[in-house]
């Protein structure tokens, strides 16, 4: 680890509340160790703002190790910043150069509105999961764990899809603000496992309907989502979702759910 210090100019989106207008404000980030993480850099700036009697920049974070999906902003035009498959909390300042100007904005999409500064409301994603992102098993009903073998390759693919952290970067990256990558990851995880098959058709129909109801856009295959996803979720999951959806829409006796409601 060889650390040095750099100075940066930040241009940060400040917005007092969901209805207030926002604007970019300029701050100096001085003497930042290149071993610090991006969020630690923001901590340092915030500490100084507090001591100057100003309101610090609001941003969401918790685990700070790339797994909770709480953090995330658009850095120089890219969700979670410039590094591939890296959440904002895992981005380190060694990837910036002394004197750089860094523009930091919230994830933007109609369905995930700004709450304050860099904090957004992603509850629409919870609504989509509530619509069908589960296997209907009550506690106590399960058969013995090894009674249903799962081919290792299927289990591995299911795990690849299940790695989604629900951060919303795919939505921010998409020109249509579509949540297809997120939805397809959950649908794929269950579609690949024998345990998830009984409800596969219903799940695909309800989750897609809920996604539309929440105001997310359509997927027109820009592939920006995959490029910006910090967990490397593959767009092959979207292809699988489309297959599941078509299969369900054609074959299922069930009608498209009309119950999807907007929260």
């Amino acid at each position: 680890m060889s650390s040095k210090s750099i100075n940066l100019t930040l241009k940060v989106w400040r917005q007092q509340g969901s209805k207030a207008p926002g604007r970019l404000e300029t701050y100096k980030a001085e003497n930042i160790s290149t071993d610090a993480s991006f969020l630690e850099m923001l901590d340092i700036v915030n500490e100084r703002l507090i001591l100057e009697g100003k309101e610090p920049i609001a941003f969401d974070h918790d685990c700070r190790e790339g797994i909770c999906g709480m953090c995330g902003s658009v850095v120089n035009g890219r969700p979670h910043g410039p590094e591939k498959e890296t959440t904002l909390c895992q981005l380190h300042m060694r990837h910036f150069r002394d004197g750089d100007t860094v523009v930091i904005e919230p994830f933007r999409a109609k369905a995930i509105p700004v709450v304050k500064d860099l904090v957004v409301n992603r509850s629409a994603l919870d609504q989509i999961i509530a619509a069908g992102g589960f296997i209907s098993v009550n506690t106590g009903q399960a058969p013995e764990a090894n009674s249903l073998p799962v081919p290792k390759d299927k289990a591995d693919l299911a795990m690849d899809a299940a790695a989604c952290i629900g951060c919303g970067a795919c939505i921010a990256a998409c020109p249509n603000a579509s949540a297809m990558l997120f939805v397809s990851a959950k649908i794929s995880q269950f579609a690949l496992l024998p345990h998830g098959r009984p409800e596969a058709a219903k799940r695909a129909l309800s989750m897609v309907a809920q996604m539309d109801a929440q105001g997310f856009g359509n997927c027109t295959n820009h592939q920006e989502c995959e490029a910006e996803c910090p967990k490397g979720i593959s767009i092959s999951n979207i292809a699988r979702l489309n297959r599941e959806f078509i299969k369900a829409a054609l074959a299922s006796a069930e009608e498209l759910p009309v119950a999807a409601k907007k929260e």
Partner: peptide, 23 residues
């Protein structure tokens, strides 16, 4: 402890598996 594993597998948790498909 054993009931937990049964339940979590039924929920669709992609635990690591051997080539034979078992946990």
């Amino acid at each position: 402890s054993n009931l937990i594993i049964d339940h979590c597998v039924a929920q669709g948790i992609p635990f690591a598996r051997e080539y034979g498909g078992l946990l």
